[in-house]
Design a protein around this nucleic acid. Sequence first.
RNA 1: GCGAGAGUGGCGGAACUGGUAGACGCGCUAGAUUUAGGAUCUAGUGGGCAGCGCUCAUGGGGGUUCAAUUCCCCCCUCUCGCACCA
Length: 809
Amino acid sequence: MNRDSNAKYDHRAIEDKWRYRWEERGDYRIDIDNAKRPFYNLMMFPYPSAEGLHVGNVYAFTGSDIYGRFMKMQGYDVFEPIGFDAFGMHSENFALKKGIHPAELVPKNIANFRDNQLKKIGAMYDWSRQVDTTDKKYYKWTQWFFTQLFNHGLAYETDASVNWCPSCQTVLANEQVISGECERCSSEVIQKTMNQWFFRITAFSEQLYNNLDVIDWSEITKTAQRNWINRSEGAEIDFGIDRLDEALRVFTTRPDTVFGATYMVLAPEHPLVGKITSAVQKKAVEEYVDAAVRKTEQERIDEAGKKTGVFTGGYAVNPLNGKKIPVWVADYVLIGYGTGAIMAVPAHDERDFAFARTFDLPIIEVISPDGTAHELNEAYIGEGIMVNSGEFNGMNSRDAIQKITVWLEEKGKGEKKVNFRLHDWCISRQRYWGPPIPVIHCDSCGPQAVPEKNLPVELPEMEDFRPDGTGRSPLARNEKFVNTTCPKCGGPAKRETDVMDNFLDSAWYFFRYPSTECENKPFDRERTHKWLPVDMYIGGNEHAVLHLLYTRFITMALKDMGYIDFDEPFKRFRAHGLIIRDGAKMSKSKGNVVNPDVFIDKYGADCFRTYLMFLGPYTQGGDFQDKGITGVRRFYDRLYRIVQSGDLRKTQIEDTELLTLIHKSIRDVTAHYENLEYNTAIAFMMELLNGLMKKEVINKESIEILIRLVAPFGPHLAEELWEMLGHSDSVFNAGWPEFDESKIVIDTFELVAQVNGKVRATMKVPVNITKEGAISSASENQNVVRFLDGKTVVKTIYVPGKLVNIVVK
RNA sequence: GCGAGAGUGGCGGAACUGGUAGACGCGCUAGAUUUAGGAUCUAGUGGGCAGCGCUCAUGGGGGUUCAAUUCCCCCCUCUCGCACCA
């Protein structure tokens, strides 16, 4: 064909043209109520930073958009919305640093994100349904969620030891503390006792845990959630306390080891510490507890393994054998898990073993792998045969777990219990830039939720919104805001001044998209059931235990409260990977951040999108190398030139070799799209183009197939080429190419001839070759003969369509 | 420490239920075309023995098999998540 053409693929002109046309025609505006085959394609909405769109955002959005376009071409009414998650400490801290008010900065950032960047990445957003979490019309409903949860007993306030970030001057949820550091600013988090609002996410622990078995999510994400929720089955057991009429309740997953308990341990914060401690030990215990409570999370982590503790002077009584055992205080027992106290079984628990060795406490073996006694040099945590366990001796330890639990239940000394690590979600933030918690504190009526008709509780404009170190929100300084009247009794009352965690804003935004214009409700019930649960959700796995856990909780709560009929928000979730550059993480400090604008300008959004997807498997991320994009650009240049040169014969494809290539390509490319294996999908499309270019004459039909296959990756270019080929409608309405297995005709194949498993020759043979035929042509091959010479054939293996392996001695 | 994932050319990465390792692309080499070219096209491109061919090669070491990147065991390295969760 004619390859000397002056025509150039002018990506700027093409992309401007199609961006404008899509918007003008409203190609991606969805008729939300009348769509016939709804498909909700969701991507995690961005935080609109002042720095602009990050390449990580583009990567995430592109992978999601490609999937959406792929579904659209298959005839679905794909709803693909986008919004802005603009409340929160990130915005606020940045605003403080720059000395600009967030209310001023955020709209600018959003405008920049949307108009200068998001509109240029080639995604098919429905711009008629945006969400901005800082918009009053939106956060009114964020507050409504709070009041609903409050009215249903799922929101409560309490004094609790909470995570405090001294730098952000606010509390954090457990999920926001990463290895003892603040998720936002990496400062060391300390513990503080404060009155805070919580959401009772633990009411759904079991459901959150169990549903993981049935939802179609990335396994990596589900594993992270399982670890976070950490369900464990066991029993709670009451130990007596010597000389006190009280019980010391412990949780254990190993009731079979009760006879091996040689001491007890209380967490330093345990309420019984004072009561149990003897006069003699009082001073030592107080000193230990003081020191332990002062320790930061980080110090505890650093010292993990090293065991410290102090004897209280008190004793507990084992409910099974009546033995008196000493009670200790040690910080390896955490107040926040189980009952904050344990029975220590050094023989069968590594931590207890280390502690017992440190303080020379007795170690009694009660489970023996073989039924005989052993000298233990380390804890034996496996199953075995019960020994030293009274009436349970000789029993299998697995059975003993049941038997002992039943025994305890019968005697009223304990019960079966499932424990979770998951804690309630602390949603109070002592900051400014968020939706105020819609509560009014009345001295006579107690805390009252703000009635729906009075929502939103508007965030007041405040010149000075800095946290002031008092541990209270800046809103507390605003008397006009604080002083109000009680909605119940009408008397003077004070508003709650904390604002809500940013993660609540994003915990329900996907409910809003289909109902953005609803003014009197957060979402329309009918629409919600038409579009939700979300069909496909794509985002980063860094939100595995934050956002993705909270959205599930909110959905379950909505169902419980009767607002919806489903209890999981996302049918499918896929975590995308991370982009690195030249083998290293991108970071501002290293100065190796890819600026998407630069690449989009130079190569075009289509190229940039395609290259990002070509780097590696989408779910695993990839390594961005600046030069690599030229390969994709060449691919599009060639494609453009072929169409532009007009040298396409209008005939149908007759060449069986070509037909085979085309139908195989459709089949394989489609399969790779479905699995989000975009890198290999692109490779197969490149192979198809390479194959087409080897032909003297390029057929219009085959080029049209290729254009449709690449359309989700390079939507502007595909539209342009489609139009150049004489189509007036969008390529995205042209349907996805279908493959016909019967067109994939393979009449010959490369038969591999091996001798002792080593390839000695390959030969082209007809597919319908018989076993005998294959073996004989293999063994007659010159090079094969050389290796058979003087040997005896032991065995011949024939794999139809693949190979012949002759085994000789 | 526990859990998950990964280690393949100079580089990014392919390889279906075990069946020609290195698809596709970058880079590189040579040639063609061009006034020239960061343009385009053609050919080549894992290492070694200097071209056929042989041989070694998928983190290391064992094993199963006619045949192993793929399955099994041991070890090493890296990334991510959790971090004394009883």
